[in-house]
């Protein structure tokens, strides 16, 4: 969706800022916000540009760096750590040949680290875009990844 279209959905109230940024960013293929766009948002809500930038840098779900079509968040907190007997992170890093914070060359996946995803009853857990995948083992993780790959090439 174009930025203008998203902006028009919201009243011109400063407290709409975060919701608006999330909606716009998550609708973009690159899942990131650009400087010009943030300036437009600031103007629309009559906010200082510095305020909008400080919000984007504060919240970890907002990004100014282009990311892949799918964002894989790996949970790394204690409940997941103690339930992870095959090393989710290393497995994904070697499957995708990238590290945390990086995007695959084909622009399909970005690997990110996440604080507890609140699904520790299904640990170890990852989140891909809006979807939680839990009770992971090596085979399940492989199956999930090949499913994403085939959907995107179909």
């Amino acid at each position: 969706m174009e930025l203008k279209t998203v902006l028009e959905k919201y009243p011109k109230k400063p407290d709409c800022l975060i919701e608006l940024l999330l909606e716009y960013q998550n609708g973009k293929a690159t899942r990131h916000l650009e400087e010009d766009e943030l300036k437009m948002v600031a103007e629309y809500l009559s906010l200082p540009e510095s305020h909008v930038f400080s919000v984007v840098s504060f919240y970890s779900l907002l990004s100014m760096v282009p990311r892949g079509r799918h964002i894989i968040q790996i949970c790394h907190d204690v409940p997941c750590y103690v339930s992870d007997d095959f090393n989710v992170r290393h497995t994904l890093e070697s499957m995708l040949d990238i590290g945390i914070g990086e995007t695959t060359e084909d622009g399909l996946f970005t690997l990110e680290h996440s604080s507890c995803l609140g699904c520790c009853d299904q640990s170890p857990v990852i989140r891909i875009d809006e979807q939680i995948y839990g009770n992971l083992n090596r085979n399940k993780l492989k199956a999930i990844m090949s499913q994403y790959r085939s959907e995107d090439h179909a």
Binding site: D77, V78, P79, S115, C116, G118, C119, C120, D121
Partner: peptide, 11 residues
Amino acid sequence: DEGEPGNFKDR
């Protein structure tokens, strides 16, 4: 906002 690691009852 339930973000404390190990908590999932609010979800």
